[in-house]
Computed example of a mutant assay.
Amino acid sequence: MKKPVVIIGMGEMGDLFARGFLKCGHPVHPILRGSRPESVAQAIPEPDLVLVAVGETELHPVLESMPSAWRTRLGLLQNELLPCDWQRHGITDPTVIVVWFDKKKGRPFVPVLPTPVAGPRAGLVVQSLEAIEVPCHTIPDEELLYELVRKNLYILTINIAGLRTGGTVSELWDRHRELAEKTADEILDIQEWLTQTRLPRGRLMAGMLEGFAGDPNHICTGRTAPARLRRALDHAKAAGIATPTLTAIAEGLAAAMPAS
């Protein structure tokens, strides 16, 4: 029997990955909300992978309390993920999945672009995704930062600009290109501060547009968009970065709120 896989968080993503691992013959042990990971780690100290499939707002508490036996076996897949997110917890070499498919409850997944995977257990993840026909590929570690920032640029630009425009990504680019470009530029300022790296802006913008072309009918905003805007503004404030476009979008949202 193949080694087990532990999945922390069994939402839509956790469920989809579980199906892939099971198809490849790996027993899957879910960690549900309220469960004690320490107890599972005592029973399964050396799983093939511990996939952290919680949302981005839950990531840091989960990593903070991660059993020591699992810390070298982690897989991460959150939106807005950057190396500083795992490094602050003393985690040095996770397997990272830059998810480029959309999965909503009760609907099949919708691929936007092939999903890149990097890290020591990338092969295991790619095999499991291929088993359920999710387009994916491994990437070298030196490409990971670009792929993470490209996905962040895509999701933050469409979510935040979409708070003003609504509509799809193709409509955002065709009808509101100046807003999209200004939003993206400010997002990249923030990403450079978070990564402490001078980023290849032209390549990243082109990469974002590949995402637009991959699913032109993708809806720009979702329920998490206002929270993404607040986080971006918090980062900008901490860094001393001017964000006139993001600030104007936030002010417009506030003005549209009914008076209490």
Rank of each mutant, 00 (worst) to 15 (best):
C84D: 04
E38F: 12
V54H: 07
G11E: 15
D85W: 02
H26K: 15
E181V: 12
L179S: 07
G222P: 01
A236Q: 06
Q127W: 13
P114C: 06
R201C: 00
A255K: 05
F212H: 08
H176P: 02
E130I: 04
L253A: 09
R177G: 01
A69Y: 04
I155F: 01
S35T: 11
H89C: 03
L229C: 03
D85H: 13
E143I: 01
E56P: 05
I241E: 11
A41V: 11
E80S: 13
N159H: 15
P83Q: 02
L229G: 01
P114H: 09
T195P: 11
C84F: 02
R228M: 08
L246H: 09
W70I: 03
H176M: 03
S170E: 15
L32K: 14
A161I: 06
T115D: 12
P83V: 02
L51W: 13
G119K: 11
L172P: 03
E46Y: 04
V134Y: 13
D48A: 15
K3V: 00
T197M: 00
R231G: 07
T247A: 09
A227I: 05
V62M: 12
A18E: 10
G207R: 03
G90L: 06
T195W: 06
L156M: 14
Q196M: 01
C136Y: 11
G20H: 04
F17N: 08
V99E: 14
G167H: 04
L179F: 09
K151Q: 12
A225H: 02
L51F: 15
D189M: 10
D234P: 00
G106C: 00
D15Y: 11
S128G: 08
G167N: 08
D189W: 06
W100S: 14
R231D: 08
Q87A: 11
A118Q: 12
F21M: 14
A238M: 01
G119H: 07
L194M: 03
A227Y: 01
C220R: 02
R231V: 11
V62L: 12
I187T: 07
T221V: 08
H235I: 08
I44H: 10
R107V: 07
N217Y: 09
G162E: 00
T195Q: 06
L188Q: 10
A206I: 01
G14T: 09
N152T: 09
A250K: 10
V50P: 07
P47I: 11
Q191W: 06
V6Y: 12
L51E: 14
E56A: 14
H176L: 03
V126D: 06
A161L: 08
L59P: 11
F109M: 11
K103P: 07
G162I: 00
T243E: 08
E147V: 05
C24V: 08
P108H: 03
Q196R: 12
S65A: 06
P67W: 07
